[in-house]
Design a protein around this nucleic acid. Sequence first.
DNA 1: AAACATACATACATGCATGTTTGTTTAATT
DNA 2: AATTAAACAAACATGCATGTATGTATGTTT
Lengths: 207, 207
Amino acid sequence: MVRRTKEDALTTRGELLDAAERLFSEKGVSNTSMNQVAEAAGVTRGAIYHHFQNKLDLIDALMERVRLPVDEMRDELAQTYQGDPISLLRARCLHIIGQVQDDPHTQALVNILLHKCEYVDDALPIHLRHLGGRNACITECILLADKAKTQGLVDEKYDSKAAVIGLFSLVDGLLYNWLLDQDYFDLSQTATQAIDTYLAGLKPRGA
Amino acid sequence: MVRRTKEDALTTRGELLDAAERLFSEKGVSNTSMNQVAEAAGVTRGAIYHHFQNKLDLIDALMERVRLPVDEMRDELAQTYQGDPISLLRARCLHIIGQVQDDPHTQALVNILLHKCEYVDDALPIHLRHLGGRNACITECILLADKAKTQGLVDEKYDSKAAVIGLFSLVDGLLYNWLLDQDYFDLSQTATQAIDTYLAGLKPRGA
DNA sequence: AAACATACATACATGCATGTTTGTTTAATT
DNA sequence: AATTAAACAAACATGCATGTATGTATGTTT
């Protein structure tokens, strides 16, 4: 069957992305061929090369699909600027944790990023996206940390950038290890305690 | 030239491992062919298949080579049981950080583990080794955390396992992000502050 | 209704990576 | 000294992944 309607084509495209996301997350990116993706989506490779230029382009589309919700979340949290900066940072971190835990698309994508793809060339869209998103988020959060410092919520002795990088590394590490073996520990419980521990350590001693 | 002496063969084997370590760390495991490894070592694929069964066996040997020093370190630190458990944990974490930063072999291997290989199949020796080593180390450190709790160095409200997993995730995350872009932040400074922050958060409030 | 463009399927060409086998030279063995 | 066996090199066979080119049936446009 060929030349279906325009929305049918979009459906095919979506099924290709679903299949790719699942296979990549299960077997790794370079260990999954375009043919396998096509078969899993019930089409042939012709369909893939019609919708995407090549594997990299496919991955790019994959990331584009879930980046949008993440951006929404960021904007949303940025607006709810109520409460102290530390609580905001906490909420943001826990939100990320929760989303990876509960949203299958996010989980698959993060799994791909952390465990199922090789960072081979600087020109790779994956690499750039990952780094870019991280740096933008960190830069934004450093402002929050500075604000918290002026409010006396964070000890003066700490460097804001290092503090934020530490917090993000903690989140990354938790996700990294949890995705490695989901049965080894409970993510939300462990993450909540770990993040609270870290944030408690940021407070001035006398507070 | 062929059939060189027995130690010449060991040299060849070592050069193969060196080449593999470098190429894998630079270009990724699945993106590096056996032929490229052989060429980089100045031999042909025949030499590789003489010393190793296949790519997985090569990687296995790669990990075996640097696992030994790491184990030495662990035994060494386990003997110096002086000082409080928290200081010991701190020293251990900073030691790992320092070793990744300063020892090229360790750095390359950790880079491969974190960024240059796909965790595709549970049967892969890489996967098992990584998980096994981690779990063993965590189990060991949980005892330390418990000990610290009985000494009143850690707040009663914290779960020991979660506390240790948090600490290790922090270290993993720091290495993960630093290896992604070594110029973005100073590893030892950031790690020292982050680890100290986390450990400070573990203390009881009134201390 | 005719012309065109889209959404694929199919077929083809190419190249590379792997694993194996065979061959050759020289150290080690007896 | 003769035999064996190690340490590779070189050649072979195979399969798979990619990219592209072509074919075709059907929606879409005018």
